[in-house]
């Protein structure tokens, strides 16, 4: 991507953005920056403010406060000039169902000053075989690819993808991901919103986690929330009556499982399994893992407990505790 990056310029810059709908604050002051040629993901649960943010950048909504620059233009006042340089895939949009795929792309291409070649677009999104099919005959995944094709028809510098794979089956998601990856190969800057962790992890160069209208964390997916430096967690089930030696301090988690966060993984694991062998105890469900992006996300967005009840609340507590225990 660095090859495509023209002098490391900034495609999108957002400072102190706010937006409220009546009493409801949708965006409560957020800042982020997207470099040219980058795939940037806004990751967050429903209602976090993702769509409001992206629609302000697209020029659909007026912001209440803050500074926004998209390709050097202010979408609040220069939306018309901006529109010929961006491509938009909205969360739910239709096209005329009675036109064919090729006709649809040709029609949208006509709106732009420098359209991209239609055959190229069809190939990019993998719809060559469907070019003469009417839109109403396309599957959900194919329609989404047509959405991307339309967004590409003006050969934009910047693409907005609002939850591009929501409601897809796994294979359709994979297909859509490949299309987005292809876009990065063209040197396009992409801003996508998603509530899927794996999507952000697979596609994005950088992720901003948004919750309650604020950005709670941002960075490359691999290091988000200190994942890369976070310690591994050993987890297992302790049989009834078994008592661990005092130096192995575990904390109980749900379903009779316990976990411990060792300072030195190998030594602690050796100590634990050695003790278990000595005692003739089987440590059921023994596992060890670093926090996944999902763990980080759930912790940052405070999502659990909101609608999943008791068990998840305990999980949240556990995660909070574990985070505390990461500090030596």
């Amino acid at each position: 991507m660095a090859v495509m990056d023209r002098s490391g310029s900034t495609a999108v810059e957002v400072r102190g953005l706010t937006k409220a709908y009546g009493e409801l604050t949708a965006v409560a002051g957020i800042d982020f920056e997207i470099r040219s040629g980058e795939i940037f993901a806004l990751l967050g649960p429903n209602g976090a403010g993702k769509t409001t943010t992206i629609e302000i950048l697209e020029g659909y909504r007026q912001r209440d406060g803050g500074e926004v620059s998209v390709l050097g233009l202010d979408p609040g006042t220069q939306a018309e000039r901006l529109r010929s340089r961006i491509g938009i895939v909205l969360q739910s949009t239709g096209v005329d169902r009675y036109l064919t795929v090729a006709e649809t792309i040709a029609m949208y291409s006509a709106y732009y000053p420098h359209p991209r070649r239609r055959d190229e677009i069809l190939e990019l999104v993998g719809l060559e075989a469907k070019r003469d099919s009417r839109v109403l005959k396309l599957s959900g995944g194919q329609q989404r690819r047509l959405d991307v094709a339309i967004a590409l028809s003006g050969d934009p510098d910047l693409l907005f993808l609002d939850e591009p794979t929501t409601g897809f089956d796994p294979s359709a998601r994979r297909e859509a991901w490949e299309v987005v990856k292809n876009l990065a190969g063209l040197g396009k800057t992409v801003l996508l919103t998603t509530h899927y962790m794996d999507e952000a992890q697979y596609l994005a160069d950088r992720v901003a986690v948004i919750a309650g209208g604020r950005i709670v964390e941002s960075g490359p997916p691999a290091t988000l929330g200190g994942r890369d430096t976070a310690r591994a967690v050993i987890r297992f089930r302790l049989p009834p009556g078994a008592v661990l030696p005092a130096d192995l301090a575990v904390s109980p988690v749900a379903d009779g499982m316990v976990e411990l966060v060792p300072e030195t993984l190998t030594a602690t694991l050796h100590r634990l399994t050695g003790w278990a062998l000595e005692q003739g105890i089987e440590l059921e469900d023994l596992s060890m893992a670093r926090p996944t992006l999902e763990d980080v996300y759930l912790e940052l967005t405070g999502a659990p407990g909101a609608h999943h009840g008791e068990h998840i609340s305990q999980e949240a507590d556990r995660r909070r505790r574990r985070r505390g225990s990461l500090v030596p």
Binding site: Y60, E80, R83, L90, T93, G94, V95, D96, Y112, P113
Partner: peptide, 16 residues
């Protein structure tokens, strides 16, 4: 129908 299908919103996001 075009409004409810989101066709109009999409059009609004293009330079036409």
């Amino acid at each position: 129908f075009q409004r409810d299908l989101g066709v109009l919103k999409r059009i609004r996001g293009t330079p036409i």
